[in-house]
Amino acid sequence: MSGSVNLTELRQGSAADLAAVSVIMQEAFDPRYGEAWTSAQCLGMLSMPGVWLTIARHGGIDMGFALSRETGEEAELLLLATRPTGRRRGVGGALLRATVAEAKLRGVKRIHLEVRAGNEAVLLYRREGFEKVGERRGYYRGRGSQLYDAETYAKYIA
């Protein structure tokens, strides 16, 4: 099915959503790349000031999430994941736009993220106005200690 998903709910998440976040990460991130976080890592991050979680829900199912943090005038998109069934249907774009909107409300001037080189999500980030600003060689450690490069993207928001 092509086209955009009509999201019935885009809401602020909390530690109570970590089980759903974990399931989404397991479906969304290929373990060979080492991109997924553990529940403990997510919980630790959620306990820090300036961190927020956004959950996308459609048809009674949690379809994706975005985990972000702000520090002063900068913000970072830490994780964005969508279930495979939500891809290319508007879920990731809705989460990314909601993250940018929340960052703007918090007084952020610049938001950045990193993504594995070669990840198709780069198309979404570029479409939403993010520009490549750097690279990190061997940033992700996947299966068998294989290293993968990361690319850094940023977007200025007014």
Score class of each variant (00 low, 15 high):
Met1Phe: 00
Ser2Phe: 05
Gly3Pro: 01
Ser4Glu: 03
Leu7Thr: 06
Leu7Glu: 11
Thr8His: 10
Thr8Ile: 03
Glu9Pro: 00
Ser14Arg: 07
Ser14Glu: 07
Val21Glu: 00
Val23Met: 07
Val23Trp: 06
Ile24Tyr: 02
Ala28Phe: 07
Ala36Leu: 07
Ala36Glu: 00
Trp37Thr: 09
Thr38Gln: 09
Ser39Asn: 01
Ala40Asp: 14
Cys42Thr: 01
Gly44Met: 00
Leu46Cys: 01
Leu46Lys: 03
Trp52Phe: 10
Ile55His: 04
Ile55Lys: 02
Ile55Asp: 02
Ala56Gly: 05
Ala56Gln: 04
His58Gly: 06
His58Trp: 14
Gly59Ala: 11
Gly60Ile: 10
Ile61Asp: 01
Asp62Asn: 13
Ala66His: 04
Ser68Val: 10
Glu70Ser: 14
Glu76Thr: 10
Leu77Pro: 02
Leu77Lys: 05
Leu77Ala: 07
Leu77Tyr: 03
Leu78Asn: 06
Leu80Gly: 00
Leu80Trp: 00
Arg87Ser: 09
Arg87Val: 11
Arg88Leu: 04
Arg89Met: 12
Gly92Tyr: 01
Gly92Val: 10
Gly93Gln: 14
Gly93Trp: 02
Ala94Met: 05
Leu95Met: 13
Leu96His: 09
Arg97Glu: 08
Arg97Val: 07
Ala98Phe: 05
Val100Pro: 08
Ala101Met: 06
Glu102Ile: 03
Glu102Arg: 11
Ala103Val: 00
Leu105Cys: 00
Leu105Phe: 00
Val108Glu: 08
Ile111Asp: 00
His112Asp: 05
Glu114Phe: 12
Val115Thr: 13
Arg116Ile: 10
Gly118Ala: 10
Gly118Trp: 12
Glu120Arg: 08
Tyr125Thr: 08
Tyr125Lys: 05
Glu131Gly: 12
Glu135Leu: 11
Glu135His: 08
Arg136Leu: 15
Arg136His: 08
Arg137Tyr: 11
Tyr140Pro: 01
Arg141Tyr: 07
Gly142His: 10
Arg143Gly: 00
Gly144Thr: 06
Ser145His: 15
Ala150Lys: 05
Thr152Val: 15
Ala154Asp: 03
Ala158Trp: 09
Ala158Arg: 15
Ala158Phe: 05
